[in-house]
Design a protein around this nucleic acid. Structure first.
Lengths: 188, 188
DNA sequence: AATCTCATGTAATGGGTTACATGATTTT
DNA sequence: AAAATCATGTAACCCATTACATGAGATT
């Protein structure tokens, strides 16, 4: 059993539940669709795949298909793997611990100049604007897919969370800039 | 030098820059004012304090003051420590990597029932409502302090970020519930 | 008397990133 | 021919939490 406390196991299982694939494609999918709320490195994914096989949650069939692709190791989820995934899905998710370095710097802002803080906030606004734009793009894309009959409500929901989240962070940062600027202009 | 890449060092320096204090009080302050965007354990704080002294960024004066409190080791920041803090404040903050387990579960939601997802979202809404309430309370408190002449703009800004963030997450979760419910009621 | 909070610390463990190593195939 | 991408993997390291150990003073 070993009490594999990390979540990598379930991310990989979830990916394999969609379709049989390789560690490489799992990473690529995470980088695209999930990178804004989850990320894994190869150093986690490949060992996890081997563990899943050892535990009977997945099986691997080596398919060096010469037709169009290169040799890659395809993993598939097993019925017990599916049961394991479903059990995890039913459990309440962990509360997330955030670590916003920007907020730390704001919090200790009395030890630097307002200009420094405003600069950090500018970069933060730009990043969150871009991220929100990305999310809006994803949503439009999923709406198109949906119109074509492809079910993708759940993926769309995660993108929607992104628009709410990044939009709010951007709005906050803009208000924070205003507050800091006003405070600075009052004093000599 | 040792390239102490973690942020604990700067959190501790920032705390000591406010006033000389002990590892214990640093932890307590973090738990109160900063817990929503930062957290440290004793296992990090105490060794960091010793490292800071070894590097000349802090000094410790043992003060087993018998008057009202128990013996605690007070640390103070040095001028070089202050310079180190200020240099860090000037650098652009790291981009934060989020890991929202809830979004993973939503994303893999096709492998469980809508009721499970709705339950997770309910808990999420309740938690974020509470957090937003806490933040609103902090803001009111800081406004009162400000009215009494105590400067606390920066602390207020971090709480304000909390209201934006938790408010947005709550709003998203409510919309997500609606979308999931509607989808479920369309099908047989 | 027992228990709670104050207060400081260390060791074990775990989770994750980064750097490194390798080699095939495709694109420029 | 060189560079980029595909593809798999390992080892070292770093960061952080948890559990453990200790003991004094305050509270019930």
């Amino acid at each position: 059993m070993k009490e594999n406390a990390g979540k990598t196991k379930y991310v990989v299982l979830g990916m394999l539940a969609r379709c049989p694939q390789s560690g490489y494609t799992i990473k690529k999918w995470l980088e695209n669709e999930h990178s804004h709320f989850w990320q894994e490195s190869y150093g986690q994914i490949y060992p996890t795949l081997k563990k899943l096989v050892a535990e009977g949650f997945a099986v691997c069939g080596e398919t060096p298909q010469k037709e169009n692709g290169r040799g890659q190791i395809l993993y598939s989820i097993t019925p017990t793997g599916r049961a394991e995934l479903e059990a995890w899905l039913r459990e309440p998710p962990d509360i997330e611990k955030l670590r916003y370095e920007l907020l730390l710097k704001i919090s200790f802002g009395e030890h630097t100049s307002p200009e420094v803080l405003l600069g950090h906030l500018d970069a933060f606004i730009r990043r969150n604007e871009k991220l929100k734009g990305d999310m809006d793009g994803y949503i439009a894309f999923f709406d198109k897919l949906q119109a074509q009959g492809t079910e993708c409500t759940n993926s769309r929901l995660t993108a929607l969370c992104g628009t709410y989240l990044y939009g709010a962070l951007k709005d906050w940062a803009q208000e924070a800039k205003r507050i800091i600027s006003e405070k600075g202009s009052v004093e000599p």
